[in-house]
């Protein structure tokens, strides 16, 4: 089936040349579903390269000098709304991860992810889905938790997760794949995807003070 589809054009942004080389070699060797078309080692290079190449997916490092991944997103997203960003980082600090998601990334995976899973994640975001690693699911659950002293809910549509979304996130955090979540909750994979996308939208748009404060309160591993 990959025969008819053109390969997903991927652009790598990471300030570690060694890491870029490693990812490029892995992606090139294991699959022709993705094609690494370019890479950049700084925010400036990344903005120029992405504008020039217009890739399908940008694999974005969270931590870089001059503002990191969030800065790249800010500079590129309005001009190129069709380019999809997937954050790829060793940083497990909640504030960094949430910041990149709120800046517009469609997902977050850690650098320890296996190559096959990375390919799957790239293909999935290129098709418009969100990619939640277990850790990101945990962060988001935590961010939307109702705790004493949480900010008042101004827009229930955005500031609260539905029970179903919560269930999906819990299973994601437990390490379940979409298919497993679907059979566990007796819903279709498509519905799981819809829930995850909706959670992503809420994470990006909710103005709940709690989201940002929580993230800076808790620099956990």
């Amino acid at each position: 089936m990959t025969g008819q589809k053109t390969a997903v054009r991927v652009f790598l942004v990471d300030d570690h040349a060694l890491f870029r080389a490693g990812v490029r070699a892995e992606l090139d060797s294991i699959t022709d579903e993705v094609d690494v078309v370019g890479e950049a080692g700084s925010v400036g290079e990344a903005v120029v390269g992405i504008n020039h190449l217009k890739p399908d997916v940008v694999l974005l490092d969270v931590h870089m000098p001059d503002g990191g991944g969030a800065e790249v997103l800010r500079q590129v997203r309005t001009a190129l709304p069709e380019v999809v960003f997937l954050a790829l980082s060793v940083s497990d600090a909640a504030e960094d991860v949430i910041a990149v998601i709120r800046a517009g990334a469609r997902g977050y995976v850690t650098k320890t992810i296996s190559s096959q899973e990375l390919v799957r994640a790239v293909v999935r975001v290129s098709e418009g889905d969100a990619v939640f690693s277990p850790r990101l699911a945990g962060f988001v659950l935590d961010a939307f938790a109702d705790r004493p002293g949480a900010a008042p809910i101004s827009d229930p549509e955005l500031d609260l997760l539905t029970p179903r979304e919560r269930d999906v996130l819990r299973l994601l955090a437990r390490g379940y794949a979409y298919k497993e979540i679907a059979s566990e909750l007796f819903i279709s994979v498509k519905t799981v995807e819809t829930h995850v996308s909706s959670v992503l939208r809420k994470t990006q748009l909710s103005n709940r003070y709690e989201l940002s404060r929580w993230a800076s309160d808790r620099r956990l591993v």
Binding site: P134, R135, A137, G138, L141, D142, A145, R147, G175
Partner: peptide
Amino acid sequence: LSVQQVVVG
């Protein structure tokens, strides 16, 4: 081996 751990709350 690697243990992927997530704790909420």
